[in-house]
Design a protein around this nucleic acid. Sequence first.
DNA 1: GTGAAAGCGCTAACAG
DNA 2: CTGTTAGCGCTTTCAC
Lengths: 336, 336
Amino acid sequence: MVTMLDVARCAGVSKSTVSRVLNGKDVVREEVKALVYKAIEETGYRPNLLAQQLATKKSSMIGLVMTNAVYNGPFFSTLVYNAAKFCEAHNHRLIFADGKQSAEEEMNAIDFLVRMKCAGVMVYARHIPAPQLAKIISESPVPIMALNQRLSALPDNAVFIDHYRGSEIMMDYLQAQGHRRIAYIRGNMLSPSNTARQQAWQDKLNALGVKDTDALLAQGDWSMESGYRAAQALFAQGRTFSAILAANDDMALGAIKALKDQGLAVPEDVSVAGFDNAKVGRFVSPALTTLDIPIEHMIQNAVERILSIKNDPARAALCGTLVVRESVGQRCLSED
Amino acid sequence: MVTMLDVARCAGVSKSTVSRVLNGKDVVREEVKALVYKAIEETGYRPNLLAQQLATKKSSMIGLVMTNAVYNGPFFSTLVYNAAKFCEAHNHRLIFADGKQSAEEEMNAIDFLVRMKCAGVMVYARHIPAPQLAKIISESPVPIMALNQRLSALPDNAVFIDHYRGSEIMMDYLQAQGHRRIAYIRGNMLSPSNTARQQAWQDKLNALGVKDTDALLAQGDWSMESGYRAAQALFAQGRTFSAILAANDDMALGAIKALKDQGLAVPEDVSVAGFDNAKVGRFVSPALTTLDIPIEHMIQNAVERILSIKNDPARAALCGTLVVRESVGQRCLSED
DNA sequence: GTGAAAGCGCTAACAG
DNA sequence: CTGTTAGCGCTTTCAC
């Protein structure tokens, strides 16, 4: 392991001088500079970032905690992709810790990142209850941003998308196509995204005067497989709906498959819609009608807030935009 | 920032004692231990990992470099998921650096990870040429494993899958179903996966005596969109094939869409197959016939090799297993 | 301009 | 069992 001292000796100068030419802060004579560069070359020296960060007390890393339950689905890659992109755009590195399957492990992951002296941490929490997360954030020496959830106690430490409004948009569209009895396949509990979407569905149905909404609700866990089974469960209770809204595209895809296996046509017999605007939605038949979620914008916000680059004054949450494709059809009223 | 010294003072002991109770290595009197724990509690002390790693010269991080071109597709999430899993299984953390779009950036990412003193680094290289990567690896102070590529110069620093053999398996299957003129949609250049798969396709076609194979080759870039366009390009030259083999599932999905848009039925008119065993393949219609790739095993190997946990003596590469679903159909010889 | 020395927060001998 | 003393590799005053 060649250190700065080795370089200094090799160049016949002091450690500080090497440090200076490396950081370009102070002025160093050109010929000495050359000497140092030559020594660096010869020794194959590479600065130790741990030591550097310890000495400067500043870090160029931003941490991301994500539960592996989220690893599937388009959300994950889009999120990581954008997180890395915006970090690097501001000369930071994304470092990633697995939140695994429990609140405790999520907290360990946060702790690791904080103790690694990250400049900030983004947390896509799946298990830590919001109040506890708020507590962790408020006690943290570095900025922590909660992703995709509201934090009423700490509104500035959370970036989120208005999933309630997004779901309303989708419900409005479905209704505009003539659908009234709309089934809903929910995601996992603990998910703020699902909670909001489901609530909007419920409220819309209530407003429409649809009764027995329980019979229109099925449980999924975000996976395609679960969407498939949820749709089957819906049949089991008799098909009393003309459309299915799934809490994400993966489950919508699963539901469509179940419908087809049942000999039903989409959207002729049953319409299906999802959320996320997964890439694959364009390439399946029928192409999936969905809601595009502005993840990129959310992440950008989180990163820039961590680095105090902008304190987005308008805290207006985005809600996504409707992507109309083929999986939702018109339903004539005479069908009633 | 509360340090170990603060804790020591608060507990009325020395720094080393605090260090001892924290690391549990040496023996400390129970009552002193209690004192220290109390002080830690009171001060809210959290050990600084940078300092710790600097002092011990050992790290519990394993780095992963991945180019963001790979971010899409099932490969990415599966790979990251498993990398994190196996790292944590051996008490290490996965840290991730973006290789972005060029060889230089990939090298920077490796450099960052090495200088962060990771215990080892895994590189899914997209741009660094193999010889150069081998050079980097051989000069590195920490173990570096190349993912998904052969390194003839450094066979022990690469884990890979036998994509040639995998492609052969798929071609054999296609032929067994009666297909002879099989088109191929290739992935990006620079990809060892594609190179091997394409070569097997070429060789099998040659062995079959199929001439003008150029007319059966279309260029994609791994994305669904590109698969769509590639299939269109194939038509443009006249449809002289009965099956399309795509270098991954995403492109296969795109191709199927293009076929359908052209009024063609899959697999009745044209059969389609891919590679990767993407989750969605089960849920589309027709369900996609594909090759399941043992990514998990590959990553496990990489991680365990980095940690010298096992030096897998049998360096036999896995090649994946065929997953027969619906997108490939029988072709009767009379069609000739 | 450049070097010496102190210090970042921690661990690891070495005494006692 | 516990405190003292050196470092780990780098940055950063402060003199010269």
